[in-house]
Design a protein around this nucleic acid. Structure first.
Length: 879
RNA sequence: GGGCGAUUGGCUCAGUGGUAGAGCGCCUCGUUCACACCGAGGAGGUCACUGGUUCGAACCCAGUAUCGCCCACCA
């Protein structure tokens, strides 16, 4: 049994043939995926050295998300690479991860079990959820039972087991050559420990820091949002022309956010703007609220925008933040974290009328506050004209549906070059060291890094996720000391500061003066996902393994997450290891539906991947995926899968035929010395060329070109070469032996060339006549083929094929069966092909049933043509 | 506004300086001896547009248009 796991570095001696009478694709996925599992065909051998290993940082799919054909598409690309590298002799490290961290899982667990995470609660080891599997029904927040973070994580792990099973079943059926004993989960204790350890080291080196600063905030999810998660969307708004009161009369500004009037801290115009020179240095008062604010000059003000003079509020947009910071303006925030205005009138509004105005707005949403402010401005006559509707761009959290507000909060950041020229340059340099496939994806990295405007915000005010592993000492007044966080040691990780206690404290000191509190926040999912090489490679728990796989060779991923996953992984590896996380990145494109739109659930055209595999067969679906080059969007095309299916079936049938020659007890010979006939040598010469070109293509991550070359050769091999030699191969003697050896040699090579794309059909055929797995067989090289071919040229096969086609054409035009004999004919061939056709004329005769005289002459023709043909009696249908 | 990619037969895509290619679809025909999940033959394109370079351009250069995506733009 162990023979299938052993490497076949040299062609094994064949042990005869076990070709079934009937061949087909049905059932190959089940039987082979099971056998591969039993035999450990893809088991990773961790004794190999770094030089012998090819390691892949596979994207962990979000298990709570739905399975999508896009997954099948891009994971097939990776598997083709993995199988190729394995056959090239590398030990492939190809673990699968499950991403069960983050909002999608949080929501599912809430609904599935009817619970809600409350990190302030203690762990309950005997907790039983109130519901179990509520069939997608949403449980109202008020009905959800609050539980500790640890209980919540346990439920998550329980729920995702089922999701993972489904994914694994799909991947096995698709034929991913993953070592299934090596999977990881992004919410596992190990992943949490890795994320916390990496964070603590960042903290120690000063790469992670806390800051109280204005930042983008989602009022629905009530969490801070990072630059990478922004999405600019069109959002309807209106310009309001509003009068401020100056000493010399009104000063008009235009704003889309009149509700921020109470948060106004200054009016700002460009220093060169002549219209406002006389106002610089003076003050004006805000309408309605009567707050005195200065008129200031700043170059970021654009004279041709709006009125040319802007109202600076804390905070309406990122320009406000810039002005606030650079002009050292006061902070007068009125929008709270829930998206509503302050409930109490702020102290900077002093006039009784202003305080009354604000009191009427207190606690309102920004939307109703805006209506109220506009009504007020109308009343006082400070609204000049009517609001003009406009379509503006606003920043949204990619999962949210309300525009982001800017609020001040204490957050954790990791330095990513966003405010540090030296680090930015270093990270841009890393980008140039990384091999992007395709190359043009590189600019997306450079654009993103070049456009960063701040460090990486990694803290989230959510409940489910990896907690920050720090506590803060409370002083005698109960105020936390944020400057010196209390840290665990690395061997204590993972910790949950909401239930674990820092060294030197006892549990009853939590939250009391002189005691401590835990950091309430969790890390952004990218803070964990950016460490997949470290998690999968055993950075923390298995340094021996890590040394053998890191830095990894390949990161396959989608183009949409270059700015997030790819970049953040580069940042973490750069900071922790001073290296790239991998040498190459393979970027897959989108799947487009027939309307050329990205396939999505909302379009209602989602096809379940398992259904696709069941209907068309895995090899067929893989063929479709492998036909699309990296970085190129591909159409979801059933037709392409049918072509793949046809190819897989042809592989089975042609192989069966090739293996049928010779007597049953005779072993197919792979002896190149037997190949003596020019046509056979010419075919092998062509195959040698294909091997070289396909190998070069795969080395440069161009699996599509490799497949195309192989496939084209394979069809020519079947349609022309096999047809030409089959009569001879049926016979006896040196000619027959030559044909049979050439057929076997070609089959042996073609199966290996096709194995990465069609793992099931090729393995099935391999099992008929060879030992071991084709997927552990060595990738073919051209040398043995060239040795057998001598100086023969594939042009001979082309010429003979063209001659055969000319004979077929006569019969096709005469509408007779191909078995009709040709009693006499003259073949006119291009002069350059004359020698080739003459050398192969016996095979051409046999294949064309040219039993009588066949004269071959050179003529001024572009392609071989048969003239003066005398056909024998047509074999009619049913005759 | 800046950038990246795409634009080739009805469809999906190759082709990156030397007389337009493949597969699917279509048309005609054939077939129990590997394969009807088959085979043979055939029709079908001024290579988005305009200009330039060149003996010669689908391919190089400049510009235009359309589509997709990334980034920026929130007064």
């Amino acid at each position: 049994m162990s023979d299938l796991t052993s490497r076949t570095d040299v062609p094994t001696t064949s042990t005869g043939r076990r070709v079934p009478d009937k061949v087909g694709l049905e059932g190959l996925e089940e039987s082979w995926s099971q056998r591969w599992a039993e035999l450990g065909t893809y088991t990773f051998d961790r004794t190999r050295s770094r030089e012998e290993i090819y390691s892949i940082d596979t994207p962990p799919p979000t298990v709570s998300g739905s399975l999508h054909v896009g997954h099948v598409f891009s994971y097939t690309h990776t598997d083709v690479v993995a199988r190729y590298r394995r056959m090239r002799g590398a030990e492939v490290f190809y673990p699968m991860g499950w991403d069960d961290n983050g909002l999608p899982t949080e929501r599912r667990v809430q609904n599935y079990y009817g619970v809600r995470c409350d990190p302030s609660l203690p762990y309950d080891p005997d907790f039983t959820p109130p519901h179990e599997g509520t069939d997608g029904k949403t449980i109202k927040a008020s009905d959800q039972v609050p539980i500790s973070r640890r209980n919540f994580v346990e439920l998550c792990e329980r729920l995702t087991v089922e999701d993972e099973r489904q994914f694994e079943a799909l991947w096995r059926r698709l034929g991913l050559s993953v070592d299934w004993s090596m999977t990881y989960q992004t919410i596992s204790a190990e992943a949490r420990a890795v994320a916390q350890q990496a964070f603590l080291r960042n903290l120690e080196r000063g790469e992670a820091y806390q800051a109280e600063a204005p930042g983008l905030w989602d009022v629905t999810f009530q969490t801070a949002v990072a630059q990478a998660e922004l999405e600019a969307r069109d959002y309807p708004g209106a310009f309001h022309r509003v009068a401020f009161h100056g000493a010399d009369g009104p000063v008009h500004i235009e704003t889309t956010r009149p509700e921020l009037l109470p948060a106004c801290v200054a009016l700002i115009a460009h220093p060169d703007d002549e219209r406002y020179q006389h106002l610089f240095g003076t003050t004006v008062t805000t309408p309605l609220f009567g707050v005195e604010v200065p008129v200031l000059a700043h170059p970021a003000a654009e004279p041709d925008k709006g009125a040319g003079i802007a109202m600076c509020c804390t905070f309406g947009d990122l320009t406000d933040v810039q002005w606030w910071r650079e002009l050292q303006l006061p902070t007068r925030s009125v929008v709270q974290r829930d998206g509503r205005l302050l409930r109490e009138t702020p102290e900077w509004i002093t006039s009784p009328e202003g305080r009354e105005r604000f009191a009427a707005l207190a606690g309102k949403t920004t939307f109703s506050a805006r209506e109220a402010v506009v009504a007020g401005l109308r009343e006082t006559g400070d609204l000049d004209g009517e609001p003009t509707p406009t379509q503006r761009k606003a920043n949204f959290y990619e999962k949210g549906d309300k525009p982001l507000e800017i609020v001040t909060s204490r957050q954790w950041y990791i330095r990513n070059g966003g405010r540090d020229e030296e680090l930015r340059t270093a990270l841009l340099e890393r980008g140039t060291e990384l091999g992007f496939h395709p190359e043009f994806m590189r600019v997306r990295y450079a654009n993103w890094v070049g456009g960063l405007n701040g460090d990486w915000l990694i803290s989230r005010q959510r409940f489910f996720g990896v907690p920050f592993p720090v506590w803060y000492a409370l002083d005698a007044d109960g105020e936390p000391n944020y400057d010196e966080p209390l840290r665990p040691t690395e061997d204590q990780l993972p910790v949950d500061p909401s239930s674990d206690v820092p060294a030197g404290y006892t549990a009853d000191q939590r939250g009391v003066p002189g005691g401590f509190i835990g950091d309430p926040d969790i890390m952004d999912t990218w803070a964990t996902s950016s460490l997949t090489p470290q998690i999968a490679g055993g950075w923390r728990s298995d340094p021996d393994l890590f040394a053998r796989v890191f830095p990894m060779d390949l990161r396959p991923q989608g183009q949409d997450i270059i700015r997030t996953w790819l970049f953040s992984t580069v940042v973490r590896a750069h900071l922790e290891h001073g290296s790239l996380p991998w040498s190459d990145a393979a970027i897959s494109g989108w799947i487009l539906d027939p309307d050329r739109k990205k396939m999505s659930k909302s379009k209602g055209n989602v096809v379940t991947p398992m259904g696709l595999l069941e209907e068309h067969g895995s090899d067929a679906v893989r063929y479709w995926a492998a036909s699309a080059r990296l970085g190129t969007d591909a159409a979801f095309e059933i037709g392409q899968m049918k072509i793949g299916r046809r190819l897989a079936i042809k592989v089975l049938n042609a192989s069966k035929f090739v293996l049928s020659f010779g007597s049953a007890d005779e072993e197919p010979s792979l002896d190149p010395a037997l190949v003596t006939v020019p046509l056979d040598q010419a075919m092998l010469a062509g195959l040698a060329e294909v091997v070289e070109q396909a190998t070069a293509a795969l080395e440069s991550y161009d699996h599509t070109r490799a497949l195309e070359l192989t496939e084209t050769f394979f069809w020519t091999f079947c349609d022309d070469y096999v047809e030409l030699v089959k009569d001879r191969a049926y016979g006896e003697g040196a000619g027959a032996a030559s044909a049979r050896a050439a057929l076997s040699l070609a089959l042996d090579v073609l199966l290996r060339l096709l194995a990465p794309v069609l793992p099931f059909a090729t393995e099935e055929v391999w099992s008929w006549w060879r030992e071991g797995s084709v997927h552990r067989a060595p990738w073919p090289t051209s040398e043995p083929l060239r040795a057998a071919a001598g100086d023969a040229s594939f042009a001979t096969v082309t010429a003979a094929g063209a001659a055969l086609a000319a004979l077929r054409k006569v019969k096709s035009e005469a509408k007779v069966t191909m078995r009709t004999e040709i009693l006499a004919a003259r073949l006119e061939v291009p002069a350059a092909q004359l020698a080739s056709v003459e050398a192969t004329v016996d095979d051409v005769r046999a294949a064309g049933r040219a039993v009588g005289t066949l004269e071959v002459v050179a003529a001024d023709v572009e392609q071989a043509v048969a003239v003066d043909v005398e056909l024998g009696e047509s074999v009619k249908r049913g005759a």
